[in-house]
Design a protein around this nucleic acid. Structure first.
Length: 523
RNA sequence: GCCCCCUUCGUCUAGUGGCCCAGGACGUCGGAUUCUCAGUCCGAAAACAGGGGUUCGACUCCCCUAGGGGGUACCA
């Protein structure tokens, strides 16, 4: 039998990091076993704007390389893949449920159920519906309806015995049927509830392995009951622990951004993103721009393979040492048996570490490709850049080296892309490094040397500068720092000899000239 | 309340009765390198929730307690 797994997002407009992990594990499991991964849309509640609300989710999954064999946009033989279009199937199932005695029409009003529940609570006993308004015959139905009552359809749970689930992650889990309620499967308005739809769809789509979040573990009995009553075969189950908040075991939620901001690492991550987003005109509204949402990472230049690698290890491990996985390695190594039972908390710092590792391993050409869109959006290079310009970008990127951790970090080196006469100077840096008369004198002397020095390469420039400071009887730092500020406007940046060489003689001279003039004016 | 699940360094984890006075990674702290920053290198601190069993021997098996999480909806 071919293995088939599924992920069933609701069209909320966001792809949650926890959801991604669930999708990823489903995907990995299917790929590992040469099976299929199906995407089904859980839109029972929303009729409007489904496409729009789905867009970020589909885009996010594709960006991460989690592709689906059947589902929206790709179709498939077992469609439709939207629950809102499958109500006939649900109606059918409910009819069969009732016909087989596994479910009944119930005419109790919501308040009447509520009252029974309250009474049970008062008596400190487990609530079970009395079935007082259960209609067993057509005559019953007519009578209740004559009273103006409307029916829901409830499951007629066994009430005794045990259900045993053999969960791929948790092992054997037992439930007492006596603890299970007569859950509603069809509302008074005729619409269907999730558990019913879920079971029917899993069956229709021939899902063999249900891999989902642990919040569904307690719901499994009622689904198992429907499955059994309908005569379906029960799929294998694997209940994944939550992705939890940083430093806690509570489920990660996109709504608690303010709380997470108290976590230093989380705040730093968001800050890094905001800095980049502001430069490229990406909307910053808190809702979508949030490290709990995948879109955040895409928009600031994270690598999908880094996110996937990190998420794969968040709750799963191959052994005691392997951390870095390419996608094929991940597929080969993955197994449900090695998924952890306990919730794993999301660690922004560690995510960053994976990102750095993957990014640094990239070829120079690839880095340029990734970095260019950010320069374009920030208006620092023309779109598309010329080949010559690309070469220049590559030089800057190479010199920046490990300082670029996500593609958007290229904007920290904006000084290399600004026109010489438009370069902005950091006030403090100028004050500190270009405030003294000696510094200006040194720069003046150096400018004259630079004007004719050949060749203008990092090594040659370094030799020249070292010799220069020796004759001036100063430490190299005394020259380098003022020079850096003059050239880049900043006190931090990458290797100074690289900086000189990348900018080239003309631009260096112009920038030094301009800095001297500016410093002279202010002092 | 009832039911279910979970519990190894701050975090992610390895560990399936002796290889563990518990290993790796991120982070932290020290030190080295250096023109700033980033990095790199070296080193250190840091955990089996608690209590009972079982066993010659428990991180590993059983029970209890505590803590955390989930479910208990005409939500998904």
């Amino acid at each position: 039998m071919t293995i088939r797994t599924r992920f069933a997002p609701s069209p909320t407009g966001y792809l949650h990091i926890g959801g991604v992990r669930t999708a990823l594990y489903n995907w990995l499991f299917a790929r590992k076993h040469g099976g299929q991964f199906i995407l089904r849309i859980d839109d029972t509640d929303r009729q409007r704007n489904v496409e729009e609300a789905l867009r970020p989710i589909l885009d996010g999954l594709r960006w991460l390389g989690i592709d689906w064999d059947e589902g929206p946009e790709v179709g498939g033989p077992l469609g439709p893949y939207y629950q809102s279009q499958r109500v006939d199937r649900y109606r059918d199932a409910v009819e069969r449920l009732v016909a087989s005695g596994g479910a009944y029409y119930d005419y109790a009003a919501a308040e009447e159920i509520q009252a029974e529940r309250a009474e049970a609570e008062r008596q400190k006993r487990t609530f079970r519906y009395s079935r007082r308004f259960m209609a067993e015959t057509v005559a019953d139905r007519r009578r209740f309806e004559a009273e103006g009552r409307r029916a829901v359809v409830r499951l007629k749970m066994p009430g005794e015995g045990k259900l045993i689930i053999d969960d791929a992650i948790r092992g054997r889990v037992e439930f007492d049927w006596a603890n299970e309620q007569d859950h509603v499967v069809q509302r008074a308005d005729g619409s269907f509830l999730y558990h019913l739809a879920n079971v029917v769809d899993d069956r229709d789509f021939q899902i063999t392995h249900v891999i989902r979040a642990e919040e569904h573990l307690s719901n499994t009995p009622r689904q198992a009951f429907i499955i059994e009553t309908l005569g379906y075969e029960r799929p294998a189950y694997a209940h994944l622990p939550f992705v939890a908040e940083p430093g806690s075991h509570t489920k990660l939620s996109k709504r608690k951004l303010n709380k997470y901001l108290k976590d230093r690492d989380f705040a730093e991550l968001l800050e890094r993103g905001r800095k980049i987003a502001a430069r490229i005109g990406h909307p910053l509204e808190a809702d979508a721009f949030n490290p709990v949402i995948v879109d955040f990472y895409r928009s600031v230049g994270f690598l999908p393979e880094a996110i996937v690698n990190y998420l794969a290890l968040l709750g799963w491990a191959l052994d005691d040492k392997t951390e870095h996985f390419s996608r094929p390695e991940l597929i080969a190594a993955f197994s449900l048996a090695r998924v952890n039972k306990a919730p794993a908390s999301f660690d922004p710092r560690k995510l960053m570490a994976f990102q750095e590792r993957h990014f640094h391993a990239l070829s120079p050409e690839r880095k340029v490709e990734l970095v260019v869109p950010f320069l374009e959006k920030a208006g620092l290079v023309q779109s598309p850049p010329s080949n010559e310009r690309k070469k220049y970008i590559e030089n800057v990127t190479a010199a920046a080296g490990d300082r670029i951790k996500v593609a958007g970090d290229i904007l920290d080196s904006d000084d290399f892309f600004q026109a010489d006469d438009r370069l902005e100077y950091d006030e403090k840096a100028v004050e500190k490094n270009l405030g003294k008369e000696e510094a200006l004198e040194l720069l003046t002397k150096l400018r004259d040397r630079l004007a004719t020095f050949e060749p203008f390469t990092p090594d040659a420039l370094e030799a020249m500068l070292r010799e220069f400071v020796e004759t001036e009887r100063i430490k190299i730092g005394q020259l380098i720092h003022p020079l850096r500020v003059a050239l880049t406007g900043k006190s931090i940046g990458f290797g100074l000899f690289d900086t000189l060489a990348i900018l080239g003689r003309e631009r260096c001279l112009r920038r030094i000239e301009r800095a001297l003039a500016a410093a002279g004016k202010t002092s």
